[in-house]
Amino acid sequence: MEIPYVSKNRPDTGLYNAKLGIWLFLASEVMLFGALFSAYILLRVGADSGTWPHGLLSVPLGTINTLVLIGSSVTVVLSWAALKMNQFGRYKFYQAITILCALIFMGIKTVEYRSKFTHYTVQLQDGTKMDGHIDGSPMFLNLSKLQAKNVEEIKFHPDAPKGEKNAAHPEPQVIKTADIKSLQSWGPWHSTYLAIYFTLTGLHALHVLGGAFVIFMIWGPLSGMWKTDPTRYTNRVEVSGLFWHFVDLVWIFLFPVLYLL
């Protein structure tokens, strides 16, 4: 039995099956991200005055990632337009750039995440609190792990004082494990801000990975359909492009909210 409206539009809705399906899916995605954005706003508005952190994220890296995603949306739509004009070679070229952009985005995100996981807040028994890095840049270290490994002391590189122009980094300090009250890397467990940051950007990164995988599959292993059913193939590219645009639009909102405001 042949499935109707896989290539042609259904007369009553004016849509083919996959386009109706992707819009229903995107509606559920809007609800998912909308709920998380609302959670962010409520957490931020509810925070005590002056306690919400600023300047924890790298704006230049976020800017590069924004440019990369904007570029990838342009190549996605140009690849679809190329198929509409029967230019399969151009489609292949543009979509290869899209996949490359997705990989660059994930690479930069990995660098950002790593810089957080190797950044620490240490609180000493005398109440002193410092942010900085531990010698050797270990990830996910905490006090119980130090004690379990019988580490007697750590070399700590404190951050430069915030808000001071051209401030020099203070000298590294050797801190005895016995003097440490708590040690936390800047993971989601560190603070409310980092928890919502990792939740939002982590979920977004999963969407980038998923979208890039689908685009790659259509671009590579499934591209034989272009010869057998070009209209349906073009529709698949459009549907993957719609998802990709949604993912990029989410980032267009995430970037100013998390990095700038």
């Binding site: 904007i70 996605v76 739509v77 267009i252 100013p256």
Partner: peptide, 15 residues
């Protein structure tokens, strides 16, 4: 995709 792309370009320009 054409219509969504126009929305995307508008948002990107504003950003």
């Amino acid at each position: 995709l054409k219509a969504l792309h126009i929305i995307f370009v508008t948002c990107s320009t504003l950003l």
